[in-house]
């Protein structure tokens, strides 16, 4: 195998996934259908030699782009996934003090929380990255959550030398973040190297493309002429616009994202 930086990123993620599979009893992976979680599923198949040996959860807000639903149905079958689709609860059930877009996004959190309770999962794999957002930069590979789904950001366990926190008091669940050390452009380079399928919405149409995919009503395209992965990589090499610029809930108030994360948003 040729060794380079992408190989190193991949090897690290595979190590994390195997640790999770070895140490956590009831494990599942969250699939948002976006570029990052597609890479996570791909890395699972790398780690487990073509298999994804645990359930794949999609929290459906009912407001995703049609392309995303088509993608889900096709690849769930093609990759032999044990797919669990959970509908997110209506907005009325969400914390009314959150700003509107954040409130909408929080539906996903609530849906996820209910799915975890319903299926009794102890570990959940998610494709977040440190470079996406300042708060995510503080995450651990293995990040414990309290029984009520809270992230105690200010008192996280130490994590070093590839030793992760893998044993927990009853009632805790743990989020596993195998992509923590990747960047947006790494994701695209790897997607290209491995020829991983992605939804067309990422590619420019009429001078605009989506850099990050969420709900139809709170996600906006950015200006771009990148029509291929190579052009996306070239664009990312020079841009100073943050990846989540098109995600409305990040920008409503200074602490909106922090509040979402603390209560269980991915």
């Amino acid at each position: 195998m040729s060794w380079n930086y992408l190989a190193e990123l991949e090897a690290e993620s595979v190590y994390v996934l195997r640790e999770a599979f070895a140490k956590l009893d009831r494990l599942a992976v969250l699939w948002s259908l976006g570029k990052d979680s597609n890479v996570v599923l791909w890395l699972c198949r790398k780690a487990f030699f073509g298999h994804v040996p645990f359930p794949v959860i999609h929290i459906d807000t009912g407001k995703k782009f049609p392309e995303m639903y088509a993608f889900r149905e096709h690849y769930a079958r093609a990759w032999g996934l044990e797919l669990i689709v959970e509908m997110a609860p209506p907005e009325e059930e969400v914390d009314p003090t959150l700003p509107p877009a954040a409130r909408s996004a929080a539906r996903k959190t609530l849906g996820l929380q209910r799915a975890l309770e319903k299926h009794g999962f102890e570990g959940l794999i998610l494709g977040i990255r440190r470079d996406e957002q300042a708060l995510r930069a503080k995450e651990r590979y293995f990040s414990p959550r309290t029984a009520d789904n809270r992230w105690n950001m200010k008192d996280q366990p130490p994590e070093f030398w590839n030793q992760y926190m893998t044993d927990f008091p009853p009632g805790t669940h743990v989020r596993v973040h195998p992509l923590l050390h990747w960047t947006e452009v790494d994701i695209w380079r790897y997607t290209k190297r491995e020829n991983i399928p992605v939804i067309d919405l990422y590619f420019a149409r009429d001078g605009k493309r989506y850099r990050s995919l969420g709900d139809r009503d709170i996600t906006f395209p950015v200006e771009s002429n990148a029509r291929t992965i190579d052009e996306i990589i070239a664009e990312l090499e020079t841009t100073h616009i943050p990846e989540r610029a098109g995600r409305a809930m990040d920008h409503e108030s200074e602490d909106a994202f922090e509040r979402l994360r603390a209560t269980g948003y991915m």
Partner: peptide
Amino acid sequence: VLDALQAERDQGITIDTTQIR
């Protein structure tokens, strides 16, 4: 500039590692 984290700014100390490219 490094931190969009409100709690950190109020205390004036970096309470957790941040990571910058």
